[in-house]
Amino acid sequence: MSLIQTIRNRDWRGAALPIGLLAVWYIVTAFEWVNTKLVVPPEKVVQVAYNYVTHASFIGDVIASLTRDLSGFVLGGVAGILLGVALGLSRWFERIVGPSFNTLKQISLFAWLPLISTWLGTGDSAKILFISLSAFYPVALNTFDGVRGISKAQIEVARVYGFTRWQMVTRLILPAASPQILTGLHLGLIYAWVATIGAEFLLIRSGSGLGNTVIQGRDAFNVELIVFGMLVIGFVGAFFNHIASRIEARLLAWRGDQA
């Protein structure tokens, strides 16, 4: 299909709302119908964005946040898969640990932050622990669901072909539960990003990060910076979401289009 056709076939009605809003934003600020200190003009946001993007410290902030986010995600994800598999495999483990896990899961995530920051300080270790906790719950929960849902028929096949314990895990349990594990990891990735920004907002006085910068913008009443920071945070989140969906679709190609 040619580019022109692609463009023509696309449903452009979805663009009307953002373009309209942008236009309204531009007009109300250009004619100063509103307090432009509060509702900053879009071109000023662009200007600030340009200043920051070309500024090494901002790039550093973004990298710091991303590193934190991904370290926490990996830690929490691995721990979640391990716990989920263990809960799904062993009835007794599930009976002993399951109730505690289900109770702790109901404690709103941010409630842990004051405790964690008292114990570990406000540095990276506290933040990473908090982020990994946020990724941990959805991964563990979904992994457990996936492992529990493995059909008896498939287990019988594995027994007929003499699978060892290790083969049971790597060739049956993990692949069979992979749709749910990936769902959990996808959710975990989203939560980890929320937790990263949240932790940086709340533990503002230590370290650098996207969240710190944005919150400092609020203290300095730098609305352009806040708007820009918010957009960056949003697009990083959307980007993660997009990547996760792509990876999921790739890895689960064997399911056909039932997904």
Binding site: A153, Q154, E156, V157, V160, R171, P175, S178, W254
Partner: peptide, 14 residues
């Protein structure tokens, strides 16, 4: 001892 089950029971991810 081998068996062909009544349902094919293939692993869908392979």
């Amino acid at each position: 001892r081998g068996i062909v089950f009544q349902e094919h029971r293939l692993f869908p991810w392979l």
